[in-house]
Write a protein that binds this DNA or RNA. Structure first.
Length: 261
DNA sequence: ATGGTAGGTGACCTA
C-alpha cells in the first residue's frame, strides 16, 4: 500500500498538477494539506473521475486538509481533539480496512507559528503540538497501524535544512518546537523517512522566493510518523522531488511511504 | 498589498 502526504498550496490552483500526480504516482491514500477551499468547492468530481474517494475538512481561504483514497474509509473524524474553540481546519483522520486489519491515516497541517514573538501564533503551535501528542498517546493504546502524515512545520534536525543558521530563530526550528517533535518520537512514533535512510539534504519544501529551488535551499518539514504497528510494515519511503520542477508547482513535494498492507 | 513569490480573498492575510 502506497500512502502519500502533500501540501498542495491551494487545490483549485493545483488541480491539474494534482491530477497529473495522482495518475503518475498512483497512491492508495493521499493526505493533502492547505487545500484552501471549503468542502463545497473542493473539485471533487475531477478527483473521483480518477477512482478516488474524497473526504475533506475545509475552511475558507486558509488551511484545509483532505484524504483521497482508492478504498472508502469506514470512519472519518474531523478536527484535532482538545480545544472546542479551535476553528482552524488542520486535521482529518480516516480508518481503513486492509486485508483483515485496520489502518488509521491522519492528514494534518500543523500551525506554522511565525512570527514567534506574536502573542497568539507560536503559543497556538505549541498547544497544537501538545494536543497532537495527547491524541497520538491515546491512539497508540489501540496498538493499531497509525500513520500521522502531513506538513508538520517542524525541521527536526540541523541537517534537515540547507543552512541551520538561517532558521535559528524561526518557529519551525526553535528548540521548543524541536523538543515537542522529539516527544512524538519518545512516545513511540517513528519518522518514516529517517527510519529508511541516513542521507542528508533531503528536503520537502523550497520557498518560492529568492531562487530557493534553484539553489536547493530547502527544508524537510513534511513527515510520516508511524506507530510501531505501522513502522514494522514500512518497506520504503520516497520524496518526489521532481514535482517541484513542474509548471506552477506547490512549494512542497509529496512524501511517500510503501507499506506491507 | 513593504519587499522577494504565491494563493485566496476582496481593500490584506498567511506562508
Amino acid at each position: 500500500m502506497k500512502i502519500a502526504t502533500w501540501n498542495i498550496n491551494g487545490v483549485k490552483a493545483r488541480i491539474d498538477n494534482l491530477r497529473d500526480w495522482l495518475k503518475a504516482s498512483n497512491p492508495d491514500i493521499a493526505c493533502l494539506q492547505e487545500i484552501k477551499s471549503v468542502d463545497e468547492s473542493f473539485p471533487r468530481m475531477e478527483i473521483e473521475e480518477l477512482g478516488y474517494h474524497v473526504e475533506t475538512h475545509g475552511q475558507k481561504g486558509f488551511n484545509g486538509v483532505a484524504l483521497l483514497s482508492k478504498i472508502r474509509p469506514d470512519e472519518v473524524n474531523r478536527g484535532l481533539p482538545g480545544d472546542n474553540l479551535d476553528e482552524q481546519s488542520r486535521f482529518i483522520e480516516g480508518v481503513f480496512s486492509v486485508n483483515g486489519g485496520v489502518v488509521r491515516v491522519v492528514s494534518l497541517y500543523l500551525p506554522n507559528g511565525n512570527p514567534p514573538d506574536d502573542p497568539v501564533k507560536y503559543p497556538y503551535k505549541l498547544a497544537w503540538m501538545e494536543r497532537l501528542q495527547h491524541f497520538a498517546e491515546q491512539r497508540l493504546t489501540l496498538e493499531e497501524p497509525l500513520i500521522l502524515a502531513g506538513d508538520y512545520n517542524v525541521i527536526p534536525e540541523p541537517h534537515d535544512c540547507h543552512d541551520p543558521r538561517v532558521w535559528a530563530g524561526d518557529a519551525l526550528f526553535l528548540p521548543q518546537t524541536r523538543q515537542a517533535f522529539r516527544r512524538f518520537e519518545n512516545i513511540g512514533l517513528t519518522d518514516a523517512v529517517r527510519a529508511t535512510t541516513d542521507a542528508t539534504k533531503l528536503y520537502t519544501f523550497w520557498d518560492y522566493q529568492a531562487g530557493a529551488w534553484q539553489k536547493n535551499n530547502g527544508i524537510r518539514i513534511d513527515h510520516l510518523m508511524l506507530s510501531p504497528e505501522a513502522a514494522i510494515k514500512l518497506r520504503s519511503t520516497a520524496i518526489e522531488k521532481h514535482v517541484r520542477a513542474w509548471e506552477k508547482p506547490s512549494d512542497h513535494v509529496p512524501v511517500i511511504g510503501i507499506f506491507d498492507f
